[in-house]
Design a protein around this nucleic acid. Sequence first.
DNA 1: GCAAGGTC
Length: 983
Amino acid sequence: MVTTHKCQLNLKIVHLTISPLSNIISSRESSIAYTVYPIPVFHCYNPQHIHFPHRQNPNCSSTRRKMGARTVTVLNVAEKPSVARSVSTILSRNQGIRMREGRSRYNKIFEFSYSIRGQPCHMLFTSVTGHLMELEFDERFRKWHSCDPADLYHAPVRKFVPEDKKDIKRTLEEEARRCQWLVLWLDCDREGENIAFEVVDVCTMANQNLTIKRARFSALIDREIHQAVQNLVEPNKWFADAVDARQEIDLRIGASFTRFQTMLMKDAFIIDTASGDRNLVLSYGPCQFPTLGFVVERYWEIQAHEPEEFWTINCSHRSEEGLANFNWMRGHLFDYTCAVVIYEMCIEEPTATVTDVKQQEKLKYPPHPLNTIELEKRASRYFRMSSEHTMKVAEELYQAGFISYPRTETDSFSSRTDLHVGTCLYTIVQEQQAHPEWGTYAQRLLDPETGLWRNPRGGGHDDKAHPPIHPTKFSSGESNWSQDHHKLYELVVRHFLACVSKPAVGAETTVEIDIAGELFHASGRVVLERNYLDVYRYESWGGTMLPTYTVGQQFVPTTLTLDSGVTRPPPLLSEADLLTCMDKEGIGTDATMHDHIKKLLDRFYATKDANTRFTPTNLGEALVMGYDDMGYKLWKPYLRAAMERDMKSVSEGTKSKSEVLAISLQQMKACFLDARVNKLKLLEAMEIFFQRTNRAGGDELHATGEVVRQCGLCQESDMVLRKNRDGNFMVGCLGYPQCRNAVWLPGPVLEADVTANACNTCTPGPVYLIKFKFRRLEIPPNYSADHLGCIGGCDQILAELTEICGTGSRTGRARGPAAQTNNARQSNTRQVVCMNCQETGHSSNDCPSQRNARHRGTNQQNGEATVSCSSCGMPCVLRTANTENNRGRKFYKCQSQECNFFAWEDSLNTGTGGRNFTRSSSIPQANRGRNGGRGSRGRGRHNGSHAANTTFVSATGDPVSGRRCFVCGDPSHFANVCPIRGG
DNA sequence: GCAAGGTC
C-alpha cells in the first residue's frame, strides 16, 4: 500500500510518498510542521581519533570496544540518487531522516542515525550518477593527426572526472573530509565495483584515513539492506579490474580503427549521407560493428536466396457442420515427380479414413514480468517505437514516479524482492481499479471468486539489483503526456496485470486421415477461458471450429489438390529481431543496446523503414565487406565474446588485468597492422559502391602514415611513410617541424606499403620493411619493379636506385597525373556531377544507369553481359548458387527492393526459357516481394510458404492416365505451365 | 572527430 510519511528537509517539511518497493516516488513541500527525531551529530577532527583506519573496522568488536560509544561519521555512496534515497529510508526506518543539497542538483545528501554492530554512526548518504570517471588518452595523443593510430595501442591513458561530474566529485571530497568511514553502496555488478573504486579514489584523495567498506545487497528491501550494512565486506578489486581492462581495450581498439578507416576513406570517396557533412566519422566499436554485422548478414542472406519451387497436397472436406482443411503430413516436397506420383495415388483412391481424433486442453501462458529488453522489443512490435525512444519515454515515466526503474535484466518477481504476492502485487492491482479501460479487469482480478489471480511466473533472469518493470503509481493519463507516454504506461500496466493472471485455456482437436496411405491432419481450437488475454490486448489466440469426426469414419474429400509454392527469403531484421540477436550474443547491455542501434543510424551504416526493419546502407555494407574480404570477422560477435570471457577470468582472479590487457592488445594491434597492410580490400569494397575522389590512398597516408621505425634523431617520435602531393614518397619524423629527420625515397616509387616484418640487421629496431613497386620505365632494366626494402641503411638496392634515379625531393618534378588528380578532386568537392551521365542532382553513386555496377557480384567490369528484370525492368546481378542441388550454378537476381525476379543463367543462355526459368519468372507477383515473406522466419530450402498457386484443379473424380497435363491433356507439359491456364 | 559503460 502506498503510504505517506513526512520528514524535515533543510528546514522545510517534505511529504515523501513511499511505494510498495519502499522507493520514494514523489515528494512535495508543505508548511505543516512535523516532529523529527533529533540526530546526534559528531564531528571529530582530532587526528588521534581518526588516523588508525585498521583499528576502526566496523566489523571488529575490539575496535568498537576501543572506540567506546563514540559516534563515527559514515559517508555512504550509492550508484544513483534513487538508491541513496531508498536505502536511507530503509536504514533510518524513515525516522529522523534529513535531506540537504549537495553540489550537484541531482545528488542529494541524506542524514540519519544508525548503529552498525553496536557502533553509533552518523550516516551521510549520497550518490553518484553512474561512472564518475572516464578513460582518455594523454593530451599528446588526443588529436587525430598527433600520432599514428597504431600508437594508440600503447599510448598512455588516464582516468579523469569529466566536467559534468565535477560537482559530484566536490560533494564527495567535502563530505569525505568530515567522515571516518566510507561505505560503498554501488550496484553489485562489475560496473558497480569499478565505480566503487572511482569513488574510493576521489574520497581518499580528500581523506587518506578513511576506513573503506562495501555493502553487498541484492534487492532494495529492509532485510537485505540491514543485513548488508551489518556485514560489510571489502570491495572486490578483481571485479573492478575486469571493467578497467574492458574500458581500455574498447578505447584503444575503437579509437585506432575509427581513426584509421575514417582517414583512409572519408576523403577518398564521395560518400553521400543525409547531412553530407565534412564531419563524417566512420567509427568502429566492438559493439556497434557486430550490431551492423547482424543487419548486413541478414541482408546478404536475402540477396543470396534462391527461390525453390516445392509441391504440397491439400485436402478439404465440407460437411453439414462446416469445412475442415487437412494438411499433408509430409509438409511439402521439392521433387515434382515424387509429388505427382503420390498425388496420382491419392486421386486413384481418394476415399479418406479417419485414423485418429485427439482432444486436449491447451494453455496459453501470459508473458514473463517485463525487463528492459522485453519492453523495447514489445514497444517496437506493438507501437513501432524505436528502442532509443522507448527508453527515453520510460525514463521520463520513471522520473515522474509512474513506473519502476526501467533498466533491469530481472524478469521475475521473487520472494527476495518486497513484492510479496498477495500483499504488494495486490496493492498495485488495487490502484489500477479506477482506470476507465482496464479498471474492470483489475477488479475481477482482485475478486477471489473469479479465480483469475495467479502468482507470476519468472523468466529466470535476475540482475540482483532491480525488480521487473511495473507500475508504481496510478494514472489515467497526465496532461503533459504524449501519445507515446500513454502507450508505454498502458503497456507496463497491462503487462503487469497479465503477469498476475491465469493463462488462457483452449480445447484443441486434431484429426488425422489416411488417403491411399498418405496421412493428412486438421486441427481446430475453441478458446474456453480468455483470462489474461482480456487485458493483454496485444496478443490474440485464434479459434477455428472443426466438424465432428470419429475414428474409422470414411468420406470423399471435397477437394484434393496438388499445389505449388516457392521458398522465400527471410525478412529484413526488425528492431525486435536485432535486440534478440544482440541479447543472445552478448552485444551491449540492457542499458546500452538501444544506443548501439541508434549509432548505426547516426553513422549512416543502416536505415530503418516504417516497419522497423533495418537495411544496411552502401557504407555499412562496404565496411563489413572490406573486413570480410580481408578474412577478419571484426563484424561478428566473436571479439566481444572473447573479451567477455577475459573479463570473467579477471573477475574470478584466474587472469590478471595486465595479462589480459597485454595479450588482447598485442593481438588487436597485430590485427590492426595487418588490416592496414590489406587496406586495399577496404578500398576495393568501397569502390563497388562509391565514386573515388581521385585522391590516391585517402587522407590516411598524408595525415599520419604508417610507422617505419622510431626516429633516431629526436628519439621521441616515430618515423612514418608519407606521400606528398606530387606523389613522391619519403619517411619523415612525426616530430616535424621540431625534428626534421627524413629519408627521401627513389623518385620512381609508384607504390609503397609498410609491412609487419622487421629488418633483421638494422638497429635500433624494429625497422619495418617496405614493399615497393617502381615504375618500370624509370628504373634500369636490371632492377626488379617489385622490391621489399629497408630504409635503415642495409638496403643496397634502394641506395643504388636513389643514386641513379634521384629522389622526388631533389628532382621536384610535378608529374601530369598528380596535377590532374588535384584538379579532379577540387572539381568534385565544388559540385557533384555524375561521372556517368554528366547530369547534376545526383552523384555517380546514385546514377540509375549505373545501379547494377554497385552491387557485389556485378560482372560489368569483367565484360560479362547483364540482364534486365523481365518483371520490373531493373538490372539483375549474376550470382552463384550454393545449395545442395545447384552448387556452382549461376543465376540472375533482380536488385529491386520490391521484386524477387530470379532466373538461371543457363536457361537464359540457351534461349530456351528452360523449365526453371519459366517457372521462376511465372511466380505470381504476390509471391515476389521481399516483404511478402513476413512470417516465414526459417532459413534454407524448407523456408517455403505455401503460395496459392494451384496447378491441379480438383481431381476427385478425374481418371489419371500417365503424366500429362490435366487441363488440356497434352503430354508435353504439366498443368502448372499449361498455356490454357496462362502458366 | 574515436569506444562502451554507468545514469540524470
